[in-house]
């Protein structure tokens, strides 16, 4: 089992519905978010490329946040999901410093918080909140270890990239380009 998210940048319109869905589902405090949209404009007129991306924790296989955590609060569970146990987190910020994606933030209650791939929903057989609400259906979620899963087939057949692969983190959120 290896969970991964695949996001089609050609279909994303940057509506931020994934952001709002996550904030609602996970009770993210006002003003914070676990996922966000970036807009990249490249080139000069008239040859301009616009790329919209919904970004979040990449649930890296080689997760520097887990490596740097002094208490073991940051850990990897089955399926490769990186989680934080709030009661073990001392709020030292080592994981925030270590994340090349800046995917973590300090919750107003003190502990460090981030995307969980909606671990609590997965256990009930549901998709992550962001994936389930996407109006353009540009987000896919599934098991990479299963060669016939939707995500495996997409990555087999489409051009794709990950963010900052040079950071050596082996990220598991993929962007179709």
């Amino acid at each position: 089992m290896r969970y991964a998210m695949v996001i089609d940048t050609l279909k994303c319109v940057g509506c931020s519905d994934c952001v709002v869905a996550c904030q609602t589902e996970n009770d993210v405090p006002i003003g914070y978010c676990r996922d966000w949209i970036t807009e990249t404009v490249d080139g000069t007129y008239p040859n301009i490329m616009l790329e919209l991306k919904s970004e979040r924790c990449n649930h890296c296989a080689n997760a520097p946040c887990v490596r740097c955590c002094p208490t073991g609060a940051s850990h990897i569970v089955e399926g490769g999901i990186v989680l934080v146990t709030a009661e073990e987190c001392i709020g030292c910020g080592a994981c925030i410093e270590s994340c090349p994606y800046d995917a973590r933030y300090q919750h107003p209650d003190g502990y460090v918080d981030k995307c969980t791939f909606c671990h609590h929903r997965l256990q009930k057989g549901q998709l992550p909140a962001c994936v389930s609400v996407c109006p353009t259906k540009c987000m896919y979620f599934g098991d990479l270890d299963n060669p016939n899963s939707e995500v495996s087939l997409l990555l087999k057949n489409r051009k794709h990239k990950t963010l900052a692969p040079e950071a050596g983190t082996d990220p598991h959120v993929f962007y179709l380009t």
């Binding site: 740097c68 955590c69 208490t71 073991g72 009661e87 073990e88 001392i90 300090q106 502990y111």
Partner: peptide, 25 residues
Amino acid sequence: DLTHPLYTWQLYTTFRIESPMSWGA
């Protein structure tokens, strides 16, 4: 500078060889 300082004792429930901060603690 910790934001969850009441949990500082959690540093001493484990030793994480890969975490420099654990070494330091």
